Amino acid sequence: MSATRKIDWTAAMHALSADRAKRPAGLLAARGLIAATSAKRRPFVVAGAYDKAAIMSAAIAAARVHQGRTGCAWGEALSVTLKATWALAKAARAAKAH
């Protein structure tokens, strides 16, 4: 008799998606920091278009704070804060559209 192996594809795909769906460390804290301090800065959306300079300056300021809190590398800190800033900018653009 030959040995057969059964694979539970549903469980395998759930495991793969769970590995990919992890949030970077400090993403929610960075989003909160940017949301709290963005009122002092320029708006992320002007006339329906993203203000990339405002987004980048907010992300850099938050990355400095994030790096100080976590001690991570600059690239990782900027990556986390850029993700958070773009999420807020997309939400602001969607809010203005409706």
Results as ranks from 00 to 15, higher is better:
M1E: 04
S2A: 13
S2C: 06
A3S: 11
T4G: 03
R5N: 02
R5L: 08
R5E: 02
R5P: 00
K6I: 15
I7N: 01
D8K: 09
W9K: 05
A11M: 04
A12W: 10
A12T: 13
A12E: 14
M13E: 01
M13K: 01
A15E: 14
A15N: 12
A15K: 15
L16F: 02
L16S: 02
L16G: 00
L16K: 01
L16P: 00
S17N: 08
S17D: 10
S17A: 13
A18F: 02
D19M: 10
R20E: 07
A21P: 03
K22S: 05
K22L: 08
K22T: 13
R23T: 06
R23D: 12
R23L: 14
P24R: 07
P24Q: 03
P24D: 06
A25W: 08
A25R: 14
G26T: 00
L27V: 09
L27I: 08
L27C: 01
L28Y: 04
L28C: 02
A29Y: 13
A29C: 05
A30L: 10
R31W: 06
R31E: 12
G32T: 10
G32L: 10
L33K: 10
L33M: 10
L33N: 09
A36R: 14
T37Y: 05
S38R: 14
A39T: 03
K40N: 09
K40G: 05
K40D: 13
R41E: 11
R41H: 11
R42Q: 06
P43T: 12
P43S: 10
P43G: 07
P43L: 04
F44I: 02
V45E: 06
V46Q: 03
A47F: 04
A47I: 03
G48I: 12
G48R: 11
A49M: 07
A49E: 12
Y50E: 01
Y50G: 01
D51K: 04
D51N: 14
D51S: 03
A53M: 08
A54I: 06
A54E: 07
A54H: 07
A54L: 05
I55R: 04
I55F: 03
I55Y: 03
I55D: 03
M56W: 13
M56C: 11
M56K: 12
A58K: 00
I60L: 10
I60V: 15
I60P: 02
A62N: 07
A62R: 09
A62V: 07
A63F: 06
A63S: 14
R64D: 12
R64F: 08
R64V: 15
V65R: 09
V65Y: 07
H66C: 10
Q67F: 00
G68K: 09
R69T: 15
R69E: 13
R69A: 14
T70W: 04
T70V: 06
T70N: 07
G71C: 07
G71W: 06
C72D: 14
C72A: 14
C72P: 03
A73W: 00
A77M: 07
L78E: 15
L78C: 12
S79M: 11
S79Q: 11
V80H: 11
V80E: 11
V80I: 15
T81G: 01
T81N: 03
L82W: 08
L82P: 01
L82C: 09
A84P: 08
A84T: 05
K90S: 12
A91R: 11
A91L: 04
A91G: 01
A92I: 02
R93I: 00
R93G: 00
A94Q: 15
A95I: 04
K96E: 15
K96N: 10
K96P: 02
A97N: 12
A97E: 15
H98F: 08
